[in-house]
Design a protein around this nucleic acid. Structure first.
Lengths: 251, 251
DNA sequence: TGTACATCAGTGAACGCGCGTTCACTGATGTAC
DNA sequence: TGTACATCAGTGAACGCGCGTTCACTGATGTAC
């Protein structure tokens, strides 16, 4: 009699912040008893360490469990399988990326003119994006790694198996998985309000901006721009970001 | 001791060009004897098939040998190890990418005005780039997969182990591994000659153009723009490429 | 307040698998004489 | 032209490894009465 009790569907925890919806007594990460207390987060964090060093390919469920000091089997109480862990890691890395962008945003001194300041912000998040990629290539690759659609079946019961059609570029699928995207669109919105970006260009502005930053980052990591000496690199980043801004703000 | 000879299957024709530096009698891909004749290419091609289906992670040396109908050991006569195979595949996929770009280039009708035609060409190679990524995601990921510096030790004997410094953005390392890059720079050069791109913008123009195309492709595959419906997608691609051109050609 | 009991969250052992790689070998080929 | 022999390019068996995952289990926890 196979009583395959399927364990928890993972990811009840949120990335990059406090754990919600759990008693505080249970939140401690240190293991001081038979029960760990917060294995989901601990495993995710261990997975992040693995990804940091070796990229998505280095994420090994058993190794993550080992790092936490827990049997490999225990992981299956929190993630349905390896792919589930990967998905959680991808989300986590996306959150970290957004953190880097926010940090860069906060690091710069605000400018008096609101429009100029918005442009500064646009440049800052782009810089944060690229700097994250260069500083944490493993996490960056994980943030954009290919995860199979083997994602645990979406709970939506009215499942017409056809893909959801009719998305506008502004209401993208899985948008919440990409907090950095929101960061970007907010700044772009402000620039349109302030008249620095023509309204007709707004719909595809996020794609343009993000594509540039993303491509730049990846080319510097694994493309023809890898091994560009650092000083050149920094100048190139600045110049490329400036070109993006020029393109967006051109009348 | 019966030596059951594996009957060859499959017609691994050679990819995209003639093989140089081998006697013609040996060049045939069909195995009609104990010796294969062109195992290096055959294994590479088999690897491409694996990468096509499952991306770089699916490239398995043993499986490639199996596909070719050869023992796994035989591969070690042609590649030092698995990483070596991967490096060859990466190069091969880069070549295929360039093919797609050239095809798109040839598909469009030339325009009379030389400057306009150069702009058309710029747009075309960008389109080819993105279309390749969407049509062959596995190959695209392989073309830009991270390969370790475990590359077989460069034969240069005067090896000062320091990295070669002083690269200009125009004389990039490993440039020959990226034929698509050359394609791009040639078109950009022409646009500068013809006065459509300000000369001061030329140094970083390739980064800008390529970053945009690359980022766009990857965002459509694994980023927040994945699952964008196809019609939207095509328009978005066109619009983004246009924005790049606007940025480059702005006075 | 104490106790029975369902449930949650761990455990260790084991499985099957397929990988990369090495080994000693052998069949085929090309070259010197 | 024939032959000895070095070298090239294959072979099958085997190794060690570590993975993802399953299994039957047990310790800890929370709740009803």
């Amino acid at each position: 009699v196979p009583t395959s009790r399927k364990p928890r569907t993972g990811g009840a925890t949120e990335p990059g912040g406090a754990v919600a919806g759990r008693p505080a007594a249970v939140r401690r990460a240190q293991r001081d008893s038979y029960h760990h207390g917060d294995l989901t987060n601990a495993l995710t964090e261990a997975g992040v360490q693995l990804a940091r060093t070796g990229g998505p390919g280095a994420v090994v469920l058993r190794e993550a469990a080992r790092k936490v000091g827990v049997s490999a089997t225990a992981a299956y109480r929190h993630f349905a399988n390896h792919g589930d862990l990967m998905y959680a890691l991808k989300q986590r890395c996306q959150a970290i990326l957004a953190d880097w962008m926010r940090r860069e945003l906060a690091a710069g001194a605000p400018v008096d003119d609101p429009a100029e300041d918005a442009l500064r912000q646009l440049s800052a998040i782009g810089l944060g994006y690229v700097r994250f990629a260069l500083a944490e290539p493993g996490l960056f690759r994980t943030a954009f790694c290919h995860t199979e659609p083997s994602r645990l079946a979406a709970s939506a019961e009215g499942s017409t198996s056809a893909e959801p059609a009719g998305n506008e570029p502004d209401e993208l699928p899985d948008l919440d998985s990409f907090p950095s995207y929101r960061l970007l669109t907010q700044i772009l919105d402000r620039l349109v309000e302030l008249g620095r970006i023509p309204a007709h260009r707004r719909p595809y502005a996020p794609m343009h901006a993000w594509s540039s930053a993303h491509g730049l980052a990846l080319l510097l990591l694994d493309g023809p721009l890898a091994a560009l000496p650092e000083t050149e690199r920094d100048r190139a980043i600045q110049a490329t970001l400036q070109l993006v801004i020029d393109g967006l703000t051109a009348p």
